[in-house]
């Protein structure tokens, strides 16, 4: 089969799942590199989220939108580079295994690679960073949501991946971003991530 023309049939997904996938895509992008002007303008101009119950995500979203409107994209990019990029030691490392101390990082990475292989996912050959980068983990979640549909197995797969790699790490990662003296724009990003992931934790617990 011609790889370029091959498309994977996407099952129709519910609006709330599409929103989750979109939030994962946004977080993946923001934790992969600093935002460009187009993305900042899109966030700044985004609609409010009207919460019908739990307002954590809605409030964090409002704060993120306001921060995007008030931040120069170039400053946000410099902030990203200063905080998350470093040869050897970044001030805040974006790799999940760093925050998962119970098991050795190598063991977790090996397990993660095995799972990705089982899911049929391979690292982009041009990508050098290890698979436990938070941007990569969010990207896997996005992929699982949009490709899996609403079936029981698909949702359990999402839950398993989230519980295995994001849940054990995101609290400490977000705390580190919030504690950094060098983060401005990324503080509301981290607060939004934490609020969104907290909703994910709760919704998976219902399964």
């Amino acid at each position: 089969m011609n790889a370029a023309s091959a498309t994977i049939e996407q099952p129709r997904i519910a609006p709330e799942d599409q929103a989750r996938a979109d939030f994962y895509a946004l977080l993946s992008r923001l934790f992969y590199a600093g935002p460009d002007a187009g993305l900042m303008a899109a966030i700044a101009g985004a609609d409010e989220i009207v919460a019908e119950g739990d307002a954590r995500v809605a409030e964090a979203w409002r704060e993120l939108v306001a921060a995007a409107a008030a931040t120069d994209p170039e400053a946000a990019r410099e902030e990203y580079d200063l905080v998350f990029v470093g040869t050897g030691k970044a001030e805040v490392t974006p790799f999940a295994t760093h925050y998962m101390t119970r098991t050795g990082a190598e063991l977790i990475l090996a397990r993660l690679r095995g799972e990705l292989a089982r899911m049929g996912l391979a690292r982009n050959p041009a990508t050098r960073e290890p698979e436990d980068h938070v941007a990569a983990l969010c990207d896997v979640m996005r992929h699982l949501i949009v490709s899996g549909g609403a079936g029981d197995t698909a949702v359990q797969e999402e839950k398993g991946f989230f519980e295995g790699y994001i849940r054990p790490a995101f609290g400490a990662f977000c705390d580190a971003v919030l504690a950094s003296p060098n983060t401005n724009f990324y503080k509301p990003v981290a607060r939004f991530a934490r609020a969104f992931f907290a909703v994910e934790v709760e919704s998976f617990a219902m399964l």
Binding site: P15, E16, A19, I49, G53, D54, V57, V199, S203
Partner: peptide
């Protein structure tokens, strides 16, 4: 689970989609 997700923010589906389209 669905109603929980909707209540918590999936009403922001449009907001999320608009931003994700720029990603």
């Amino acid at each position: 689970r669905r109603s929980f997700l909707v209540a918590a923010g999936a009403s922001g589906a449009a907001a999320a989609a608009a931003v994700a389209s720029k990603v």
